[in-house]
Design a protein around this nucleic acid. Structure first.
Lengths: 154, 154
DNA sequence: GTGAGAGCTGAAGTCAGCTCGAGGTCAAGG
DNA sequence: CCTTGACCTCGAGCTGACTTCAGCTCTCAC
């Protein structure tokens, strides 16, 4: 673990694609950590790049930082996570990703037909009710699949 | 166009699934409009439901309200939009939707392998560089497909 | 030793897209 | 007419994920 194994924040910026500000923010939020030089500058272990890759993937799926932190907290403490650890972790997003893809595909397939069709009946419209599941939840907004319900905006 | 063709805001809430507050916000932002009773209450034409369906679909794809407004502004003024008008409009999102689906599928396929793989080379990693396009854009963050670059969060 | 550029902090600001609350007004069934 | 519930406005507040700023310090190649 000599000094050559540690990365400056600038190196992590270059290799992760995240800006300084995001890295510092993630540290404040407890998603990544760094040791410090005697002068107070951050030095990152290489493993942080893998964490950041995971964070980026999770963010791309629309997962919030809180949940990402929870997931990262489930990594084994005390030893370097193995490939299997990461695989297990990322597998937990898999279902969500599938769901999201499915929702977007349903939206795509229903897009032309639905918006123009005039049906706009909550019970029948594929846009509102993809997969022809009829929801009896009462609230119209609940009929959209969860993946599409939250506004996927930045 | 007698009074029976006009909807109260409550009816629009029920039939569109948008809350009052969102409808009023959309009105302020120029996405929908309503006439008023002598007492100042909103009365919506039925066509607003179609606009709202369009807005919901667009939002689900992650399109911002500004752009949605621009699209809606391109509807013919003076006459009720036809099915063809709506189809034309929604077709313009189609490519974006395809792109987004593709990006998510790439992410899904790369998820296990990439996060754990340790490659993390911007040039080779499928997560960073789906479809094996090599980007020479310089900035690491630019390598993610546009659909995944903006954080799809709510 | 020194100069330049990389890094530091904490607080405040930004942005989209709503949401909420207070304090009142309107519409319609009985 | 009266009551009740739906509706109104305006402005402030909220959430998440950062970004920006000012003013200062550290590091390291020369």
């Amino acid at each position: 673990m000599d000094a050559h194994d540690l990365l400056t924040i600038g190196e992590v910026v270059d290799r992760s694609g995240f800006p300084h500000s995001a890295l510092r923010y993630y540290e404040r939020e407890g998603l990544v950590s760094a040791t410090r030089t005697s002068g107070g500058q951050r030095r990152y272990e290489r493993g942080v790049l893998r964490r950041l890759a995971f964070i980026r993937a999770a963010r791309a799926i629309g997962i919030g930082l809180d949940e990402v932190r929870d997931a990262l907290d489930r990594l084994p403490a005390g030893r370097t996570p193995t490939k299997a650890d990461w695989t297990r972790l990322s597998r937990s997003w898999r279902g969500r990703l599938d769901e999201q893809i499915e929702a977007l595909v349903a939206l795509r397939d229903g897009l032309d037909s639905c918006i123009g069709c005039g049906c706009l009946s909550l019970a029948r419209c594929r846009l509102w009710n993809p997969g022809d599941r009829i929801g009896a939840q009462g609230d119209g907004a609940r009929l959209l699949p969860p993946a599409l319900r939250r506004p996927p905006v930045g």
